[in-house]
Design a protein around this nucleic acid. Structure first.
Length: 417
RNA sequence: GCGGAUGUAGCUCAAAGGUUAGAGCACUGGACUGUGGCUCCAGGUGCUGCGGGUUCGAAUCCCGUCAUCCGCCCCA
């Protein structure tokens, strides 16, 4: 029986991991500078949490969640995204008792049962951030600024920052009314999914990409024309802040987002480097979610970055620092093996990356191995040198060699630490 | 969930219905038991993704299935 990884799930091998680690370390450093704190939440949650937050009508909940029952018959889901869990944790742990704003970041696997494609996997990873307790647009400005700084450190260019507002409790109903009457006329021309959405969640009809729907909705009313004064001011103030921070953006009234908890500002960051899976980060404000999940009314906003897509871009643009170089210990004969093992340990204790043969082979083969490993420094433990209390060193790149005591050797190796 | 393309060795690819499915690279060992790179030699249980069918004969043709990639959809 040959086992293969599940569809849409993949192994990330050492070669690629270095890019992951670089991105993760870069993110953590920057997030700490922006005063975000890491939070780790479970991968499993009650499925109800996602039904309530993401929305029963969303594609994610409707057809993409990994669901199962545990031994007690509880309905469990593998998390399809991070925000719901963080909000749950925020409420459960009464984190609102700390001074506002509360700023969190997380990093980990998410699961959606989708048709896999490049840049779209069933297990994928997100770096996400959430800010609780502040309702001013400075939060969104800070989030967008963070994204811009992050991508700029990673030397990613050709990004587009797109922004929209979805309105609030006050203005959205009026818009929905207008939209509803507009959609009613168009109903016969809509796809079957949308006919159903029409009743339960008309906003999502705008998000439909089926061509017949797009055609029917060419001149649909846009939320951005129905915003109340507060929402208009919010958006205008955000624009001002973005100008101060010198962040280029475009207003895209078509952005709706696939998760129902968004209110007010939403945004997407897309790239021209990825083909059709081109969204590399997205987020927005969700001022009603905390209350919806049982907490005190708390304004909040956040975003998530897609790691796989970011890694894909960074593999093209980033030049990683070379790995720490390896020192190879060879020994001339079986009698020197013990001494070689002691030397390996000593070097490792000094923080030097060291490798040695696990069993005796000819010195020639040891050197051949060292060469194939691409090492620069080889230390040879041999009978004659040991008598003098020395080791033989060999610089494979420059083809030089000599004898030296351990202290001299350690200082020679300083350069590679 | 829909449409299309592709699946041969670790990798890149040959073999266009006819011996025992090959080559380069990579890998392992040897020639060379105290010195690597060059050279030469040797080393493959590849169920030709899997299962069925057609045929005297299938990597090759047909059907199914699984997987990957591309587009749709979805989204990060």
């Amino acid at each position: 029986m040959n086992f293969k990884s599940l569809r849409g799930m993949r192994d990330i091998l050492p070669e690629e991991i270095r890019t992951w680690q670089f991105i993760e370390e870069t993110a953590k450093k920057l997030l700490e500078i922006y005063n975000f704190k890491e939070i780790r939440t479970p991968i499993l949650e009650l499925s109800e949490l996602f039904l309530r937050s993401i929305g029963e009508e969303s594609d994610i909940v409707e057809k993409e969640m990994y669901l199962f029952e545990d031994k007690k018959g509880r309905k469990i889901a593998l998390r399809p995204e991070g925000t719901a869990s963080v909000v749950r944790a925020y409420i459960q742990n009464a984190l609102f008792n700390h001074p506002f704003p509360q700023k969190f970041y997380y990093l980990g696997p998410m699961f959606r049962y989708e048709r896999p494609q490049k840049g779209r996997y069933r297990q994928f990873h997100q770096i996400g951030v959430e800010v609780f307790g502040i309702s001013t647009p400075s939060v969104e400005a800070e989030l967008l600024c963070l994204l811009k700084d992050f991508f700029s450190i990673l030397k990613i260019e050709g990004l587009s920052f797109e922004i929209n507002s979805l309105g609030c409790k006050k203005c959205r109903p009026l818009y929905k009314e207008n939209l509803n009457s507009y959609l009613k006329n168009k109903a016969p021309n809509l796809c079957s999914d949308c006919k159903r959405r029409l009743v339960k969640n008309p906003l999502r009809v705008l998000d439909c990409k089926v061509s017949e729907c797009r055609e029917a909705l060419k001149d649909n009313p846009l939320i951005i024309d129905y915003l109340c004064e507060d929402c208009i001011n919010h958006l205008e103030n955000l624009k001002k802040e973005l100008k101060i921070l010198e962040i280029d953006y475009v207003i895209n009234p078509k952005i709706v987002r696939g998760l129902d908890y968004y209110t007010g500002t939403v945004f997407e960051v897309t790239t021209n480097m990825l083909g059709s899976q081109n969204a590399v980060a997205a987020g927005g404000r969700y001022d009603e979610l905390v209350q919806l999940l049982g907490g005190h009314p708390t304004p909040a906003a956040g975003f998530a970055i897609g790691m796989e897509r970011l890694v894909e871009i960074c593999k093209q643009t980033l030049i990683l620092e070379p790995e720490k170089s390896l020192v190879y210990i060879a020994f001339a004969g079986r009698n020197e093996e013990k001494e070689a093992k002691r030397l390996v340990r000593l070097l490792r204790q000094k923080g030097i990356k060291t490798e040695a043969p696990y069993e005796y082979v000819s010195l020639k083969n040891q050197l051949k191995k060292a060469d194939r490993l691409g090492v620069k420094w080889v230390l040879i433990v041999g009978e004659e040198e040991l008598k003098k209390g020395k080791y033989r060193w060999k610089n494979m790149k420059e083809s030089t060699e000599g004898e030296a005591g351990i202290e001299d050797i350690l200082s020679m190796l300083e350069e590679i630490k």
